[in-house]
């Protein structure tokens, strides 16, 4: 059961680690790490579903009866990876600005700073 769907189990485990990190950590940088992990688990889900048993790389060859893996999910996930990089970059940029403005990257400290405005 576990090894039949090894990739998918890893996806689920990574996803849960990522989501838990986002929710449980108050350090903003750790939140971003959790968010990246969560997104990466989805990349893995897409890549896994393009795999066809016995399939080779989808490069046209003249050999008879070749089974190709499905390249489309891989292409899709390239786009999502770019989006993920952009999200991480923007999130980190915001953290830098937050550090400048509030003097902290810890959510709880920031909240207590906000009250003192």
């Amino acid at each position: 059961m576990f090894f039949d769907h090894f990739n998918y189990w890893i996806v689920v485990i990574l996803m849960m680690i990522g989501l838990y990190t986002v929710m449980s950590r108050s350090n903003l940088v750790k939140k971003m790490i959790g968010l990246s992990l969560f997104q990466i688990s989805v990349f893995l889900l897409y890549i896994s579903m393009g795999k066809i048993e016995g399939g080779t790389a989808p490069i046209v060859s003249n050999a008879p009866d070749v089974i190709y893996s499905n390249p489309l999910p891989h292409v899709l996930i390239l786009t999502a990876i770019v989006v993920g990089v952009a999200t991480t970059a923007l999130g980190l940029a915001l953290i830098v600005r937050i550090k400048e403005a509030f003097g902290s990257v810890d959510e709880e400290e920031i909240l207590s700073n906000e009250d003192n405005l």
Binding site: V22, Q39, T87, G91, L94, R97, I98, F102
Partner: peptide
């Protein structure tokens, strides 16, 4: 300056939603 934390909070929640 709270705009920054608001944007960050939206970024976290919004990314989870989009994912």
């Amino acid at each position: 300056r709270r705009a920054l934390t608001a944007a960050f909070q939206y970024l976290i929640i919004g990314t989870i939603g989009a994912t």
